[in-house]
Design a protein around this nucleic acid. Structure first.
Lengths: 203, 203
DNA sequence: ACGACGGTCACCCGAAAGAGTTACGGGTGA
DNA sequence: TCACCCGTAACTCTTTCGGGTGACCGTCGT
């Protein structure tokens, strides 16, 4: 029983991927998820043989998702999906333990051959590259809420606006902000946003 | 009577956009079109105050649509809609005369604020710049000083600290800050830093 | 069962930020 | 020449931020 889990925040892309992966010989089941949290839930319930994860995701980021999947099961086989040239994100995810990546605008044949290969060989890995893997150890771990607040900041929202968006009081947003500042070592929101980008926590 | 015209080839996206734009304060009517030809027809019949056009369209392309709209009425206010990182298309459309662009996966608040801004100010432009077709990056042009100030912000410096670093008064730093906010379309320093990263102006 | 942590909310307070406005000299392009 | 932008600076006024502190309630791990 070979199953694949596909994660992408865009419903259209998700469906297209689901259909494409389903045509790979040997794949019996394809499940989908819209975000990192859902991936972790589904993975906990039913471990697929392969996971495809979009690098750019709201909420729990791709890097964090990869890290948590691997801490749950170090044997998890993960392939990143990327749209454009955000190679930084891919690099970080690969450094975090993903097996490789796929361009979303790769041909269907390309996708199929990569998936086939990854399924056939449990040790399959994209050519190992020299990445900033050393940096990853020090990467601050933000909670989902903290990342949501950080993302709000990166979109120019005030604490009050973020609170309205997340159905929280402004004071609660401030608490999350203070905690994430401390974790990141940021002196203010602008600094926090910059560090978020440098760590690949937001994009 | 404020009206907005939305053009997108995907019915789902079209409806979602229509609903989102309809919630913008001051907008009384939202009409939709599925392609460039229809936009031109509707524009001929009844000129809206603002037009949102998907960059990716079948038949008459977005760039050609923009060009024809502007040749019919040079005051037409057009904002491009883009899905991914097809900056080429956006850049061409902006070069052709579009006022700016919006990521389709931008938050509803972001969309609303951009539309509000564009409706409020007839001269609104995402980044007032002298675009050449070769510009291609479409990145807003910040002056050296503005980039220095933005970099200071990205390192968590206060305006006063940035001033001391650059041998400027705090008030001067504030002036540079205000100007770069306007150029980037940022609402505060955190947003400006985020946009700086997204445009590749800082790292 | 205990503590640590995360999520929620509240209050106070001083320090920043940001908006608006004005101003002046220099450079540059139309 | 005139208009426009840039760099510099000052002023006021309001909003927002950030730190400190305390509190209550879950959950999770040990």
């Amino acid at each position: 029983m070979t199953s694949v889990l596909v994660c992408d925040d865009s419903p259209l892309a998700r469906e297209a991927l689901r259909r494409a992966v389903a045509t790979v010989p040997g794949v019996e089941r394809v499940t989908t998820a819209a975000n990192g949290e859902e991936v972790l839930r589904r993975w906990g319930a039913d471990r697929s043989d392969l996971i495809l994860v979009d690098v750019r995701m709201p909420g729990l980021g791709a890097v964090e998702t990869v890290r948590r999947l691997l801490s749950a099961d170090s044997g998890a086989r993960i392939i990143m999906l990327t749209v454009a040239e955000d190679l930084d994100g891919v690099a970080l995810a690969v450094a975090a333990g993903a097996r490789g990546y796929l361009h979303k605008d790769a041909s269907r044949a390309e996708l199929r051959s990569t998936v086939t290969q990854a399924l056939a060989d449990p040790t399959w890995r994209l050519a190992p590259r020299r990445l900033r893997s050393a940096d990853m150890g020090a990467a601050p771990t933000l909670t989902a809420r903290e990342i949501q607040v950080l993302e709000g900041m990166s979109h120019g929202r005030s604490n009050a606006e973020i609170g309205r968006e997340l159905f929280l009081s402004e004071d609660t947003v401030k608490t999350h902000a203070r905690r994430l500042f401390k974790k990141l070592g940021a002196s203010d929101r602008a600094h926090a946003v910059a560090l978020g980008f440098r760590w690949g926590l937001v994009r």
